[in-house]
Amino acid sequence: MNKDLKRILSKYMVPILFIIICGVGIAIAKPPLSYLTGELARRMARNTFLVLSLIVPILAGMGINFGIPLGAMAGQIGLVFVTDWGITGIPGILVAALVGTPIAILLGNFSGRVMNKARGREMITSMMLSYFIMGVYMLFLLYFFGSIIPFSNKKILLSQGYGIKNAIKLDVAKGLDNLLNIKVDFGLMGQKVAFEIPVFTILVIAVLCVFIVWFKKTKIGHDMRAVGQDQKVSSNAGLITDKIRIQSIVISTVLACYGQIIYLQNIGTLNTYAGQDQAALYAAASLLVGGASVSKASIPNAILGTALFHLMFIVMPQAGKALTGDAMIGEYFRTFLSYGVVTVALIMHAYERQKEMAENRVKARQKMNGQKVKLKA
């Protein structure tokens, strides 16, 4: 029983820790339930799609894809074009997705090929790659858009006549969220709870969850799982491991493109040059908070982690203000935790991996000794 409890605590240490942190934060800040539930519902609808886009590469043994900002950039380029063309609502979101998809496929393919050259270091490679592509992205937006690529909407261009402004208001704002919106209003623990649920956005997220479950059962899903478990065995079995790994990154990048569009239509404005900066970090932290690792992740991990991570984001500034009178203390604390979770999870994974390798070596040695004893007999 003690061993089972120790194993459970070890496996779910990060989510348990965050539940305690969020519980303490709520007890200190005592935020109104209406504000807490409403803000959490908005953040869940806004961020869950992006977090789910990380699952497929983990299935293929690629670790956490810190290159999802490439997909986010593709989605943002689609939104810039849609804003220039003046397309609003759902049509604008669909056109932005259509424009972003081929860019995301191209970037995902490039990213996958680079990561195949850096086996065992995919996560740091994908992170560095996102910084490189960000330079190309900025070149397009600062110089090509409005000069080489014609733009008619002068409101989104810089005063020099080319280049996109730092922040632009999106015509597709709330296009998805307002399509089917349910208002919830009830009393709980003597407080009035009122918030809106963007049902259509949640349905889109549910469709992605169904797609991931279905995808895992397809041939390519089984191939990715086999490659993720052992590349040498998969290669000897006739699987083209490089191609399968690239496919996983392409799927993740395209999903990140859609996820960023969903995120930004909820926000309503586009931070043109920095909107994609935190996409990978916050999505990765959310997934790890839910109990996932860099070698195993599931849909429940993504949903639970998104809820806990963003609950901390809501509560900590208020808790910091209640304790010290300065909300920035809470901001510093949650920034520290968001980076800390990724760091601790990676260290734990490396430790578990070394421990597993050591156990495998001991088992192999015992097996060889057993075979030698039989031969002597």
Rank of each mutant, 00 (worst) to 15 (best):
L5W: 00
L5P: 02
I8T: 04
L9V: 01
Y12A: 10
L17Q: 01
F18R: 07
I19C: 14
C22Y: 05
V24N: 10
G25I: 07
A27H: 09
A27G: 15
P31M: 10
G38K: 13
A41Q: 03
M44P: 01
L52V: 03
I55V: 08
L59Y: 03
G61T: 00
I64T: 05
P69A: 09
A74G: 02
G75V: 01
D84E: 12
G86H: 05
P91H: 07
G92N: 06
L94H: 08
L94A: 15
P102S: 05
K117F: 01
Y137Q: 14
Y143K: 14
S147W: 04
K154C: 13
K155D: 09
L157F: 11
S159H: 05
S159C: 10
G161T: 14
Y162A: 12
L170N: 12
D171Q: 12
V172H: 10
K174N: 04
D185H: 02
F186N: 05
Q191N: 09
E196W: 03
T201G: 11
V204N: 01
F215P: 02
A226I: 03
S235N: 00
N236S: 01
I240M: 00
I244N: 08
T253M: 03
G259N: 14
I262D: 01
I262N: 02
I267G: 04
Y273W: 06
G275S: 14
D277K: 06
D277E: 10
A283W: 05
L287V: 07
G291K: 06
S293E: 08
I303H: 09
M316Q: 14
K321C: 04
I329E: 00
F333Y: 11
F333H: 13
F333L: 13
L337C: 12
Y339V: 03
V342Y: 13
R353M: 13
Q354N: 09
V362S: 14
Q366H: 14
K367Q: 15
K367R: 15
Q371W: 15
V373N: 12
L375I: 04
K376T: 14
